[in-house]
Write a protein that binds this DNA or RNA. Structure first.
Lengths: 177, 177
DNA sequence: GCCCCCGCGCGACTAAAGTCACTGCCCCGC
DNA sequence: GCGGGGCAGTGACTTTAGTCGCGCGGGGGC
């Protein structure tokens, strides 16, 4: 209903991989409702949040009474499937550098404001958070940001990023090796 | 209805990542039916197969008439979600060696027969195929199989594998680094 | 105002992954 | 029997990822 939740998997050695971030209108922990199995991942609140609980029985009854809701639900989990496939694609085919660039481009497009120096936006969290989303470690995020800056593609100032050369950035996503 | 299909993502540079293998009773290409979007991945036949087609309209109508089918469908895509999360977990946290061992253990448990020398089974395809499932390349599969043999954990003979030390294998999955 | 903690930059290193090139083998068609 | 193609083993190498340790600096708590 309000706030922001982070769905993630964590490894015994303390690494984390973010699977999704859900805001108002999103849903978490639906899987056990669908198939009665265990929770596939963990959830934590990024901000103070307010969540609504629907029991397995109530949900199923409601779906049987209002079949169009079930169809809608299929579309919702379908979207989640797509995102997971995207994550898998990035993890198996893209380098950390490319994943980082991909995240930056996405941020620039969604949260960026055009200025005279380029597209400007703020990183949504610490480097550590970003590393978790990309499935890597803090140092690599830091290093790669510096490298991109050295290449004059972006300009970093604490958590604010200015994209100076969006086409140049996007080009990195194409390079096969 | 019959045969075996492979759902996978392929990269421009020729690498592949298998997302799922579906047999009789399974389904492929449901996502566009749910949300009207594009296909998230590719499918190819591993064996000669026979598939049934259900149109978007027919499926939706059928779900509205038989809401319990929609719920069943939710459970099916739920299972797929679980598998994808599992793949993501392995890709971000496990080494190639661990992923390989994990696959071997799974095969031993599902397709293995107990003999005096250990649990014996056949690899379902070429090393290349296995590499695609693990999200890596042929050479690493080959090398790691050899290494496991050198460590006396398994015995490799062409495509037949004998697991000599299942606990020893499983132990590899626990090591954090 | 002081201190402390956290986030970040960075260098040096290790280890894992992937690439390239080559060899040999086995099976199949002819 | 001969030749060719696909699959597997392997060595040498490069690149990328991840680890460890340290120093710096800013902001918040006291």
């Amino acid at each position: 209903a309000a706030g922001k939740l982070r769905i993630f998997k964590s490894s015994p050695s303390g690494r984390e991989q973010v699977l999704a971030v859900e805001g108002p209108g999103g849903s978490v922990a639906e899987l056990p409702v669908f198939d009665g199995g265990p929770y596939p991942a963990s959830v934590s609140a990024v901000e103070d949040s307010e969540v609504l609980f629907i029991s397995r029985d109530n949900f199923r009854r409601f779906c049987l009474d209002h079949p169009e809701v079930a169809l809608k639900m299929l579309a919702v989990v379908g979207a989640r499937l797509r995102r997971l496939v995207g994550i898998i694609e990035e993890l198996s085919f893209a380098t950390v550098r490319q994943r980082l660039v991909s995240a930056l481009v996405r941020l620039a497009q969604t949260a960026g404001t055009h200025t005279d120096r380029g597209i400007e936006f703020q990183l949504p969290g610490t480097h550590q958070d970003l590393a978790h989303q990309l499935g890597t470690v803090r140092e690599l995020v830091s290093r790669n940001l510096m490298r991109l800056q050295a290449e004059n593609l972006i300009q970093v100032d604490a958590r604010s990023i200015v994209v100076r050369d969006l086409p140049g950035l996007s080009a990195i996503l194409e390079t096969s090796s």
